[in-house]
């Protein structure tokens, strides 16, 4: 019953092991159930985006478009300055920039597994003749912070993207594309932000008392599972929303 709800920053780990039916940790089961549930959350968001794709009546649109392709020709020209019906406008989605942020998020997952591995291997002495890289690999603080920083960088990219869209005339109110795009990516961004806060909390605990032992491995493990899940959601979003037209 007890290790279940055991607190994050609590000093004395009661290491008396409680019996569980599967031998697994309660919190790990709960986080996987949560991840299963989140699949449905993002499926609803992505479905809505895809259903509404191409149904916006006014621009800007996600991919290459011209004022002619819009459903309500007259209105579009007023909405986007300098739009003549013959022009082919560049897509509003910025693939190069988003590729960079995708790269950062993927690498943050690598940093996250290394953070977990570092906490798992606490207490194992470094091999004889360990170089700077081995010492680096053994530092959970370094990898936790690296993951958090990369997550924050991703949020930075997203803020840049959102701001530039607003400058190009696309807000959450402009059209169906704007509503569904900002809501979908915003939900993902909110998940990343929660993850960054979680990572920073773990980092703070690590600084304060050092993360080690079975209970702390679990603490990092559930955060890592959440983080990787947010990453795989982005893998899906990047392909479905950005690359496929």
């Amino acid at each position: 019953m007890a290790t279940a709800d055991t607190p994050a920053g609590h000093e004395g780990h009661h290491e008396h092991v409680h019996y569980t039916s599967t031998g697994l940790e309660n919190r790990k089961i709960a986080i996987w159930a949560l991840i299963g549930s989140e699949c449905m959350l993002f499926a609803s968001l992505i479905s809505t985006y895809l259903i509404y794709k191409g149904r916006s009546k006014v621009g800007p649109f996600p991919h290459e478009w011209s004022c002619k392709t819009s459903n309500v020709v007259g209105k579009t020209a007023e909405l986007v300055a300098g739009c003549a019906p013959a022009d082919v406008l560049k897509p509003i989605l910025d693939i190069p920039v988003t590729s960079q942020s995708t790269f950062v998020l993927l690498m943050s997952s690598l940093a996250m597994v290394l953070a977990l591995a570092a906490v798992e291997n606490k207490g194992h002495p470094l091999p004889a003749g360990a170089g700077w890289w081995d010492r680096c690999l053994a530092s959970s603080k370094f990898w936790l912070m690296a993951t958090a920083v990369m997550g924050a960088t991703f949020i930075g990219y997203q803020s840049y993207e959102f701001t530039s869209f607003v400058h190009e005339g696309l807000t959450i109110k402009t059209n169906l594309f704007g509503s569904s795009f900002f809501t979908l990516t915003g939900f993902h961004g909110a998940h990343v932000s929660v993850g960054v806060l979680w990572l920073l909390t773990l980092f703070a605990i690590d600084v304060k008392r050092g993360l080690k032992g079975k209970n702390d491995v679990l603490l990092v493990d559930i955060c890592a599972l959440y983080w990787h899940f947010v990453d795989v959601v982005w893998i899906a979003i990047f392909t479905l929303i950005y690359l496929i037209q």
Binding site: W32, I35, G36, C39, M40
Partner: peptide, 24 residues
């Protein structure tokens, strides 16, 4: 890890993907 986790995830993902295709 334990196969239980696989099942929990596969169940959520499976129903999510089926629902998404149905909606589309």
């Amino acid at each position: 890890d334990h196969p239980l986790f696989k099942r929990l995830f596969a169940m959520g993902l499976g129903i999510a993907i089926c629902t998404m295709f149905a909606l589309l």
